[in-house]
Design a protein around this nucleic acid. Structure first.
Lengths: 361, 361
DNA sequence: TAGACTAAGATGTACGTACAAGTATAAGAG
DNA sequence: CTCTTATACTTGTACGTACATCTTAGTCTA
């Protein structure tokens, strides 16, 4: 096989490209004029022009009529689509709009756009989306993991992201074995602890817990719930815990609570720690259907402090979700990763806060 | 100003590009040889080569050594990023999440992604965003106009979209002079009429109307409100109408209603038609602050049938907003425009529906 | 000192030639 | 009939010339 050195214009392209990539020619710097290059390499000006045109198409240089040819500012590596993918599980009208709003505010300011995708909480879908995103040239990725507690077979896709130097930030959760990756999450265990502890401080001892089984948040809030019970010396009773999956979020907790409430004569709970505000509202509805009232008969707590919590029938005592702040923090972290700054803290945990309203007594 | 026709290679580029775009040269078809083109246009072969190289860079043609130059399979137009921009006014957690969800469902199925942007209801921002989107190569655009009742100076940007053959669909509103463009909207006048007519049928005659001043929906709902009053022979009283701007949506309606409610001895209204559910809730809060109750003292109606309407303190009688359906219809319409199908109906108006709950009597 | 002019030097357009190298086809040899 | 070969035609590389157009900087003039 012969070397490529036989093509003069190709030679020049490689030489100049190397000089740019190695830093010998810096962004904005003027290249030698076409005639100078021609003379220096003992080739014709037309051949030099051909080489420069190739470099221009590749984005390494740009020419200005009458002034000269210059090295591009952005070292031509990738064109920078200025798109950043935001992958969430659901596009529900629950808390995500605000998270995305927070992300958007930060990104728009810096000239980036959001490419929105959602996985419907399916890992297969998530893998498909990341593959797709690797094709489009995105500058970064903010992702909420799907069904995060289950072991994830598609970790190699994240290795691909690393390889292509596409920075990513996890929000709301993170796969095991990736705990050191940049991420912003809430201390869900502490949140579960705080809200349970609050109920205990009001005198409740028979506290039902409702948790989502298919993500890390559910697991963590459950742990916090147990921790608070233990601290108060209350025995943990598995029969008082209801687990549900995302698909059944509208029916399962409702039916379970109704079933439990039916045994009124031996009502064995006086408080409910719900996984989130949506579930809390459905719990209250279930109680009312059995002629029980909240907070008079049963105290109920939510989680996330969504707009539902403030405006629903019984304003909910809940745990504050930072929403916009979570989004803007994630966007800022991603931007600093993209600029390859030395980022000190890449794992940020937001402390939960108790918001007291009317649903407990 | 001189025409572009002076540059020979540029001429040839345009001629060939037009032939390809118009279908005179079909994908895979062989173009005339460089010498033939040179002879036919009485220009040199080198000039022909320059033109062909530009077309090759743009993806319209490809050359095969020794065989010829051929028209690209993918008609070269744009590389098809498979991104579709969705531009809304706000990313509120109000009704947009569901609209976007509807769009996303349809687009994901066809392998497209959403590029999300929001204008904060500013026309300047909208112009900036469209300019930016013209740079990125999007395949289509779904847009909710900003401050749509005000005359829009940036219509030329839509002409640019036409020129680049990027199809777009308006949702929720449309600029004047663009009534014939593809759009999906709600019959807001009829909605305003229906809800006002309903209040009249309950016996109300002193009905306050609250409308947003800075978009078409507000204007239309206001017209429907007047229409219903006229039909019932009730005189229109401008003092009973409150106009507000988006920026003041949280304070202005609330304060106005409180002010009106303060004159209790001569309470001159017994019903309120609110612009949307959010405002309706704030109206109810204002009434309660003055010790008036809804629906006992004053009937209040919402609009949009958001999740707020069902779960708030006093479940709202409101007008159904199709949400997901609006989104999916817009996405489907856009897709059919993109495939250049002959689309029969490009202006779709969705009929409003009354949803009766507890906030009126 | 401010402004106009000029010249030098940069890229851009256009044409020309010559030869290299790949492809398809038709003619000819076995 | 099959394989080889010659040939004509294609695109690719390389060089050369000439002039147009734009920028910059220096010079001259009012």
């Amino acid at each position: 096989m012969q070397t490529d050195k036989r093509l003069k214009y190709h030679d020049l392209v490689e030489e100049l490209r190397d000089k740019i990539l190695s830093g010998h020619i810096r962004p904005g710097e003027k290249l030698p004029s076409e005639n100078e290059l021609a003379a220096a390499h003992a080739i014709s000006r037309q051949t030099v022009r051909k080489a420069l045109q190739i470099l221009e198409n590749e984005g390494f240089v740009y020419a200005e009529h009458g002034r000269g040819t210059f090295c591009s500012d952005r070292t031509g590596v990738h064109k920078s689509s200025h798109n950043i993918a935001v992958v969430t599980t659901y596009l529900s009208d629950y808390i995500f709009p605000r998270v995305i709003q927070g992300i958007d505010q930060v990104l728009t300011e810096k000239g980036y756009s959001i490419l929105l995708k959602n996985t419907r909480n399916s890992r297969a879908m998530e893998a498909k989306i990341i593959e797709e995103l690797l094709q489009k040239d995105i500058d970064g990725l903010i992702i909420e993991p799907s069904k995060s507690q289950i072991y994830c077979k598609h970790l190699n896709l994240y290795a691909m992201l690393d390889k292509y130097q596409i920075p990513y930030v996890f929000i709301q959760g993170c796969y095991s074995h990736m705990e050191k990756k940049p991420q912003i999450l809430l201390d869900d265990r502490k949140g579960g602890f705080l809200i349970t502890e609050y109920l205990i401080s009001l005198g409740h001892r028979d506290i039902v817990g409702i948790f989502k089984a298919d993500d890390m948040q559910g697991q963590e809030r459950h742990k916090g719930y147990i921790q608070a019970l233990q601290q108060a010396g209350i025995a943990y009773d598995p029969d008082k815990v209801i687990w549900y999956h995302t698909e059944d979020r509208k029916s399962h907790p409702y039916e379970q609570i109704r079933r439990m409430a039916k045994k009124r004569e031996k009502l064995f709970f006086d408080a409910v720690v719900a996984y989130n505000d949506e579930v809390a509202i459905s719990v209250i509805q279930a109680l009312e259907a059995e002629n029980l009232s909240c907070p008079k008969d049963v105290s109920v707590t939510g989680y996330d402090n969504s707009y539902l919590a403030a405006s629903c029938k019984v304003p909910l005592t809940t745990i504050a979700h930072p929403q916009e702040k979570l989004g803007s923090m994630a966007a800022k972290l991603l931007l600093s990763l993209m600029e390859k700054e030395e980022v000190g803290q890449t794992k940020i945990i937001i402390e939960p806060e108790l918001v007291i309203r009317d649903s407990c007594q």
